[in-house]
Design a protein around this nucleic acid. Structure first.
Lengths: 196, 196
DNA sequence: TAATGTTTAAAACAGTTGTTTCAACTTAAA
DNA sequence: TTTAAGTTGAAACAACTGTTTTAAACATTA
């Protein structure tokens, strides 16, 4: 792996772990065994490096993407949504760190926004969430208000994303593999948000 | 207000807004119109000041506390839980900043832990969450597994806390007062997590 | 008033941050 | 081989961080 790529991957680790502001370019260079100046040479600076990290991380295709894109037309809305939720939980609790990166970024951006948040929101997040709104609308029928659709969507996301917070889940349950162990149970409960 | 108190309240603003690591003592001194050295003089340092902030913020009694403490014995579990949820939502979406402080702290601690997180978790959070576990257990009956009780509790918290994230809710709904407007609707949906 | 303890103010401190400089090194084409 | 462009490494830079020092100002009491 060439040096630029090594730095990029070290940067992904650091930025997703600490968030933009608390990430340290010296830590990145240590991990990549590169010189400090390399970051400015290859990328132009911390913010520019972060932008490439965002681009990379949001272009990784995970099981969840496949669900979003390829909705089998023979699939009922309920099945599709269940699949949506399970995939989301799988990605956020997966052993594969690749799948977690973007959710880590999102969490950090929500709590301590970087200069790039507006871009990320507009180009990376809103389009993905639009899909969820569609399916919820379809499922609840045309008589449902917009506020109710929004509420339901956010309830689903809230439930999914909360389980992504490892220290929270561990602190509450005392178990390390709680989500992995209970994915079906959790997804089953979440889907009920809609079916009443 | 004496100087020490002025500094403490400026510190509450800064720490709840930025979190421990990104909070700046110079910003606190500016807000309090105090000299830099005052923080070390009155409190002993940044971490000690943060500890006093935590103590203050978690001792503010809000509508939610009242619910936790005074459970009317004539109240049915369902009613109590609904009250619990509505109070939680009210606190996190309240105009009164006092009520929001502790939730802001919690969010920051979850994402970028400070040296004080273990204390906060043990002394401030676990005791509060124990109450929720109790009521859920009572509501679901003795045949429910511990994992299911934990799952249900976390689903409730996840749903509540997600609505606390203003940029998220605004980004999704395009509305500023969405939670305030829809508290009954949201609480009604969340409570259904349990009653099925 | 004089003496004592408390509070404030300005400056400096040591350590860390992202960035830049500049000379040395490597590579590949002329 | 020579030349030029691309790459690397060590050091220094200015700005910022929390903390400390030092002395002046203030208040209180004898």
């Amino acid at each position: 792996m060439d040096r630029k790529n090594k730095i990029l991957h070290a940067a992904i680790d650091e930025f997703t772990d600490k968030g933009y502001h608390l990430a340290r370019i010296r830590a990145i260079c240590d991990k990549a065994k590169a010189n400090l100046a390399a970051i400015n040479y290859y990328f132009g600076g911390k913010e520019a490096l972060y932008r490439e990290v965002i681009e990379f991380v949001f272009n990784i295709s995970d099981p969840f993407d496949l669900v979003i894109q390829d909705r089998g037309h023979e699939m009922k809305p309920e099945e599709y949504l269940l699949h949506w939720i399970e995939s989301f939980l799988q990605c956020t609790s997966s052993e594969n760190p690749l799948y977690k990166y973007r959710y880590k970024i999102i969490i950090h951006e929500m709590v301590s926004p970087s200069p790039l948040l507006p871009e990320i929101m507009a180009h990376k997040m809103i389009p993905r969430l639009a899909r969820l709104k569609e399916i919820v609308k379809e499922l609840k029928g045309s008589r449902t208000t917009d506020d109710e659709v929004s509420t339901l969507c956010m309830l689903i996301i809230g439930q999914c994303i909360y389980f992504f917070n490892k220290p929270m889940v561990e602190g509450f349950t005392g178990q390390k593999d709680f989500v992995d162990k209970n994915i079906k149970l959790i997804a089953g409960k979440i889907i009920k948000t809609l079916t009443i």
